[in-house]
Measured scan of single mutants.
Amino acid sequence: GKMTGIVKWFNADKGFAFITPDDGSKDVFVHFSAIQNDGYKSLDEGQKVSFTIESGAKGPAAGNVTSL
């Protein structure tokens, strides 16, 4: 299901971020390909987002990341 959280930090050079979920679970890795914005895919620290949890090769990662 959809979860919500806050972007903890975003590394534009490497194209990934971490989200701190609102439910208090541990921070979730985000690859820029999961960001659903049109055009430039970036996130801002402190931004509120919704996302799903996908199981990636290196463990859980956020999918369908959308700005709220």
Rank of each mutant, 00 (worst) to 15 (best):
G1N: 10
G1D: 09
G1Q: 12
G1H: 10
G1S: 11
G1I: 11
G1T: 12
K2A: 10
K2D: 04
M3G: 04
M3W: 05
M3Q: 07
M3P: 02
M3T: 05
T4M: 06
T4W: 09
T4Y: 10
T4S: 06
T4A: 04
G5W: 01
G5R: 00
G5S: 02
G5D: 00
G5I: 02
I6F: 07
I6D: 01
I6G: 01
I6T: 12
I6C: 06
V7M: 02
V7T: 00
V7N: 00
V7W: 02
V7E: 00
V7C: 03
V7K: 00
K8T: 04
K8I: 09
K8L: 08
K8W: 03
K8R: 12
K8F: 03
K8D: 00
K8C: 08
K8H: 06
W9P: 00
W9Q: 02
W9Y: 13
W9F: 10
F10Q: 02
F10W: 11
F10R: 06
F10V: 15
F10K: 08
F10I: 15
F10M: 10
N11L: 07
A12S: 09
A12F: 09
D13V: 12
K14E: 06
G15K: 08
G15Q: 12
G15V: 02
G15T: 08
G15C: 15
G15D: 03
G15M: 12
F16I: 14
F16T: 04
F16Y: 13
F16C: 15
F16W: 07
F16E: 04
F16G: 04
F16Q: 03
A17C: 06
A17G: 15
A17N: 00
A17E: 00
A17D: 00
F18Y: 12
F18C: 14
I19C: 01
I19D: 00
I19K: 00
T20Y: 02
T20L: 05
T20S: 12
P21V: 04
P21K: 01
P21S: 02
P21D: 01
P21I: 06
P21W: 03
P21L: 06
P21G: 01
P21Q: 02
P21E: 01
D22P: 01
D22A: 06
D23E: 03
D23M: 02
D23S: 03
D23H: 03
D23G: 05
D23L: 02
G24T: 01
G24D: 03
G24Y: 02
G24L: 02
G24A: 02
G24E: 02
S25H: 04
S25E: 04
S25W: 03
K26H: 08
K26R: 10
D27W: 06
D27T: 06
D27A: 10
D27G: 09
V28E: 01
V28I: 13
V28P: 00
F29H: 05
F29Y: 11
F29P: 02
F29E: 05
F29T: 05
F29K: 07
V30A: 03
V30Q: 00
V30R: 01
V30M: 08
H31R: 13
H31M: 14
H31C: 15
H31E: 10
H31W: 15
H31T: 07
H31D: 11
H31G: 05
H31V: 09
H31L: 14
F32L: 09
F32T: 04
F32K: 04
F32H: 05
F32Q: 04
S33M: 04
S33L: 05
S33C: 15
S33E: 07
S33R: 06
A34L: 12
A34D: 11
I35T: 03
I35V: 06
I35D: 03
I35Y: 04
I35Q: 02
I35K: 02
Q36P: 05
Q36Y: 10
Q36W: 10
Q36H: 11
Q36V: 12
Q36N: 11
Q36K: 06
N37R: 06
N37L: 12
N37K: 07
N37W: 14
N37F: 12
D38A: 13
D38C: 15
D38M: 12
D38T: 08
D38Q: 11
G39Q: 08
G39E: 09
G39W: 08
G39P: 09
G39K: 06
G39F: 09
Y40C: 15
Y40A: 09
Y40L: 13
Y40F: 12
Y40I: 10
K41C: 15
K41D: 10
K41H: 12
S42C: 15
S42A: 11
S42I: 10
S42K: 10
S42P: 08
S42F: 12
S42T: 11
L43P: 03
L43N: 01
D44E: 13
D44K: 14
D44A: 13
E45R: 13
E45V: 14
E45I: 13
E45Y: 13
E45L: 15
G46W: 03
G46C: 07
G46F: 04
Q47A: 09
Q47W: 06
Q47F: 06
Q47I: 08
Q47D: 08
Q47Y: 05
Q47E: 06
K48H: 13
K48L: 08
K48V: 09
V49F: 02
V49I: 07
S50C: 14
S50E: 08
S50Q: 08
S50R: 07
S50M: 10
F51Q: 00
F51N: 00
F51C: 02
F51V: 02
T52C: 14
T52K: 06
T52S: 09
I53A: 05
I53V: 08
I53C: 14
I53P: 05
I53E: 02
I53Y: 09
I53K: 05
E54S: 06
E54K: 05
E54T: 06
E54L: 06
S55M: 13
S55Q: 12
S55F: 10
S55W: 12
S55V: 09
S55L: 10
S55E: 13
G56W: 09
G56H: 12
G56N: 07
A57C: 15
A57R: 07
A57N: 13
A57I: 13
A57H: 12
A57E: 14
K58C: 15
K58P: 14
K58E: 15
K58S: 15
K58D: 15
K58M: 14
K58H: 15
K58F: 14
K58Q: 15
K58I: 14
G59T: 07
G59W: 09
G59N: 13
G59Q: 12
G59L: 11
G59C: 15
G59R: 08
P60T: 10
P60Q: 08
A61Q: 15
A61P: 09
A61M: 11
A61V: 14
A61W: 08
A62I: 09
A62Q: 12
A62C: 15
A62T: 10
A62E: 12
A62Y: 07
G63L: 07
G63N: 10
G63A: 14
G63S: 12
N64D: 13
N64R: 04
N64I: 12
N64C: 15
N64A: 08
N64E: 11
N64Y: 05
N64W: 06
V65D: 15
V65G: 14
V65F: 02
V65Q: 07
T66E: 15
T66Y: 01
T66K: 05
S67E: 15
S67Y: 02
S67Q: 12
L68K: 15
L68R: 15
L68W: 01
L68Y: 01
L68P: 15
